[in-house]
Design a protein around this nucleic acid. Sequence first.
DNA 1: GTGGTCTAGACCACG
DNA 2: GTGGTCTAGACCACC
Lengths: 125, 125, 125, 125
Amino acid sequence: MFLSLDANDKRPIYQQIADGIKALIARGDLREGMVLPSVRQVSGDLGVNLNTIAVAYRQLQDEGFVTVRHGAGVTVSSRRGRQPGQEALLKSLRTALTEWILAGFADREIAAAVRQELSSARQKR
Amino acid sequence: MFLSLDANDKRPIYQQIADGIKALIARGDLREGMVLPSVRQVSGDLGVNLNTIAVAYRQLQDEGFVTVRHGAGVTVSSRRGRQPGQEALLKSLRTALTEWILAGFADREIAAAVRQELSSARQKR
Amino acid sequence: MFLSLDANDKRPIYQQIADGIKALIARGDLREGMVLPSVRQVSGDLGVNLNTIAVAYRQLQDEGFVTVRHGAGVTVSSRRGRQPGQEALLKSLRTALTEWILAGFADREIAAAVRQELSSARQKR
Amino acid sequence: MFLSLDANDKRPIYQQIADGIKALIARGDLREGMVLPSVRQVSGDLGVNLNTIAVAYRQLQDEGFVTVRHGAGVTVSSRRGRQPGQEALLKSLRTALTEWILAGFADREIAAAVRQELSSARQKR
DNA sequence: GTGGTCTAGACCACG
DNA sequence: GTGGTCTAGACCACC
């Protein structure tokens, strides 16, 4: 698995993991039906407690991104569950863009960064 | 003050306030040298604990967005404040874009949303 | 066999199978004395591990719904099987009804859904 | 709080708690804006670990039934979030009714039990 | 082997 | 005071 944790990141570990996996799905590195590494394996690889990984996986399940089959591992599910809702989507985008504006970037530069991120987020598609 | 709090927002209140003020600065509603309302007044307006407002102002001060002068209120400082660092900027943008991708939006649509948000964030400039 | 498994169902597979067979009995599709397909056949049909089917049949046997005769297959037994107990019956009904109430349905609507389900569950009688 | 745990209940403790609170909301014992007892208090009252209660509250939050404000307690929120979806509602009702049928109850008796449960679930309305 | 639940106890963040 | 996160370690259920 190509997940990395950042101690300086303010998000909790389980959230970093869940977000990382979402990014892998968005990128196409993880596709429908693929099996995710077991809770125990991720725990060992990242040096993080079992429970913490379980919380991340559980969140992904609640949000409909993965299907958990009890003794049989976790797989990427086909249809995403509920979306965050247009409102939430806009809010997080707005916050991110505000930071860029305050850092002094011009619209042109921000748009370029967005284009770059989009293409890298879709590399495997 | 044109700040609104959202109980369903997952950010802590002090962060919503700090972000809101940052957005007002980015928008140009608050410009260099302008005086922010007192901690006490914001506290009353929003019905929020004094300490909470103080924490928000303290963060804005730490990040260089405002200047606190004892007995003379809080003013917007010039814009060479400390940036969050390129890494943090990218991370927050990346997370927001990932959500849009997973919600099924095409690059075209996302770029349009970005353009719209940018122009509305700069309305007053 | 007219059993279908749902990966998104939170019940374990063996429970889905056992419940499905109970429903077939309740509906009258399976009647006293009829022979159930072998563990091996169900396993093949559904693509499920042999042990899992065995657990389901074992539960049906424990609850008195079927009779297992060595070498002679599994047959539906007469209906004086062990009931779950009034308490358990009420609890599961109560949980289901609570969900309907919280979803905003009126008593009239809930009662209608109950009537419909009852008649469809008894179609073959 | 009028929550009780049943060791014979097959649902996990956190689920019993979450379901119990949902029932209190459906019943009208807990209304919009009311404050739930703190995690620590429930933990003490029921003799259950803090984390277990936290999991229950978190589930209620994820499902939109309560609003959590960090240092300020948990309150019943106004609008329920996403419903379980008509499919899930029907499935749980169908399972419950099947049990009653297999226990030998007539439609008349089942309908009566439903009526009784509905009225008791709405006592405070 | 897999994931799920629960405990005890620590430390942090928020108001 | 409140809730949030994380750990270590136990035991259970499923396949």
